[in-house]
Structure formats: structure tokens, C-alpha cells
């Protein structure tokens, strides 16, 4: 049933043409009113997907960069309502996803969360502390309306990987290393692990955790369907002095990632 979600359609079509590029932005970082424009800039520079991050007070899957961005965004006053509003401003069918923690989903109630996300034009959700499992929330969540992107990690067993693959998700989020989000050196072990994953999975998969620049994006994309970049973008935004600089940085950095991925095939 969920095959027909607009996220499934977008991924299927785009994947036939190029490596996919997903950009994560913490909603409201560094200023509430910047996110809409930074997201549009990223789209124009070649991002396929925007993962709109809901900052959480206790982001246990995140490294220091996203922790700090989250704290800063919360200080700016980001709420779920604000995130839904922002999503509706940048909405492109099949191309904007919610990313955030389970307690943000539960705060609205699972059903209302799905409805509000859909109304604001989001096409999927990534919730890192909600692995596939049998629990009450799973049965209340309407995958047909808002597909969830599942994860695989280097510790996932072969059976687990098959179980995730069988979900028929629009794509799988492959964590490159055991760890938290953030930039890190890329070693051969990671590439070997991803090559094995590629042989195993039928579902498209994007690699996240540890993409730091165009070069690492290219190497990771060569053994996957594309990459997810978060900390490196946010860190760069954090070093800019004003809104124009930030937009310029996003345009250039995302553009460089796009070109690197396009030189991949």
C-alpha cells in the first residue's frame, strides 16, 4: 500500500537518474526565520530531500554539533507548531521529511502528529529512537499517509537487515558507523560494510552519520544510493556572520556536494 506514497515515487524516479542528496537542517537554527530560505537555497543548489529537524532537549543520538544547534534553536523558541508552519512554507511533494525524537511525536499524539505532518506537506518521518518493533505507537501510525524511514546500523544482524528491507520503505537510512551524528574520518571498513549492504538490500538506502565534505560524499555515494548531510551543513552555517553569508554558504556547499555526487556514476 505504502509504495504509492509521494516519497516512494520521488525516490524511485530520482534514483533512476542520480545519486540522492538529503540535507538535514535543525528547524529554527540559528534564527527562527532563516530555515525557510536556507531550505529553498539547498533545494536550488541540488538537494533532493530536506530533513527538517525538530530540536529536542535530550538528543541522545546526536553528536556535539547537532546538540548545540538543538539547544540554540530551542532557545529561539522553536515549537512543533512552528516546525509544521515552516514545513508548509518549503513544501515540495515527496521531498520534505520530519526528523526528530519519539517524545516530540508523542507530545502531539501519534495520530494527530501524522495528520499535522501531512497537512503541512511533509512526506515522511525519521525518528531515530523508534526502531522497528512491536509497540502501541506502531499500530497507531498510518504508514500510508506518512511513511517512516527505518534504519540499519553496523550492528544490525542479517535477519534484522532483511526484516527492514521487507518493510517496503521509501528508503532506508544506513548509519555508516556505530556512533552519534557528526563528521568523522572515512575509513575503508565503512566502505566495505556499505558494499555488503548494497548487495543485501533491495530497498534504496542513503548513508548518514559522518559525511563531512564533497569527497566523503562521493566515496560513500559510490557504494549506496546517496548521502544525508547534517552536521557539516549546520557547522558551516554556524560560522557565517549574517543571513546573506549563510545562504551563500549553503548554496556553495550543497552545490559542491551535488557536483560530487553527479560525478559519481
Amino acid at each position: 500500500m505504502q509504495r504509492h506514497s509521494n516519497l516512494h515515487t520521488f525516490i524511485r524516479d530520482a534514483r533512476a537518474k542520480r545519486k540522492l542528496l538529503a540535507i538535514y537542517l535543525t528547524c529554527g537554527y540559528p534564527r527562527l526565520d532563516w530555515t525557510t530560505d536556507l531550505a529553498s537555497t539547498a533545494f536550488e543548489a541540488g538537494a533532493d530531500l530536506i530533513e527538517l529537524g525538530m530540536p529536542f532537549s535530550d538528543p541522545l543520538a546526536d553528536g556535539s554539533v547537532i546538540q548545540e544547534c538543538s539547544q540554540r534553536a530551542l532557545e529561539q523558541g522553536v515549537t512543533l507548531d512552528f516546525l509544521f508552519h515552516t514545513a508548509s512554507q518549503i513544501s515540495k511533494p515527496g521531498r520534505v521529511l520530519f526528523m526528530g525524537y519519539m517524545n516530540s511525536v508523542l507530545a502531539k499524539g501519534t495520530r494527530e502528529f501524522v495528520t499535522r505532518s501531512q497537512e503541512s506537506g511533509m512526506s515522511g518521518a525519521i525518528v531515530p529512537d523508534w526502531p522497528i518493533a512491536k509497540n502501541a505507537e506502531t499500530s497507531e501510525w498510518d504508514e500510508a499517509i506518512l511513511p517512516r524511514v527505518p534504519f540499519v546500523a553496523p550492528t544490525s544482524s542479517v535477519e534484522r537487515i532483511r526484516e527492514v528491507d521487507a518493510l517496503d520503505a521509501p528508503f532506508i537510512y544506513a548509519v555508516s558507523v556505530a556512533g552519534v551524528t557528526g563528521m568523522r574520518e572515512l575509513d575503508q571498513g565503512v566502505l566495505d560494510y556499505l558494499s555488503k549492504l548494497k548487495a543485501e538490500l533491495k530497498t534504496p538506502f542513503l548513508v548518514g552519520f559522518g559525511v563531512s565534505d564533497a569527497d566523503s560524499a562521493k566515496r560513500l555515494a559510490s557504494v549506496s544510493d546517496g548521502v544525508i548531510v547534517g552536521s557539516a551543513v549546520l557547522k558551516g552555517i554556524g560560522t557565517t556572520k549574517n543571513f546573506e553569508d549563510a545562504k551563500k554558504f549553503v548554496a556553495e556547499f550543497v552545490g559542491s556536494l551535488r557536483r560530487a555526487l553527479d560525478s559519481c556514476k
Binding site: 519519539m102 540499519v152 548509519v175
Partner: peptide, 12 residues
């Protein structure tokens, strides 16, 4: 209760 954890911790 339950298990609300990153995928990396499911196997451990």
C-alpha cells in the same frame, strides 16, 4: 517500558 533506542543499540 519498551525499547526506544537507536538502531545501533538494538542488537546489543
Amino acid at each position: 517500558g519498551g525499547q526506544y533506542i537507536p538502531e545501533t543499540l538494538v542488537a546489543p
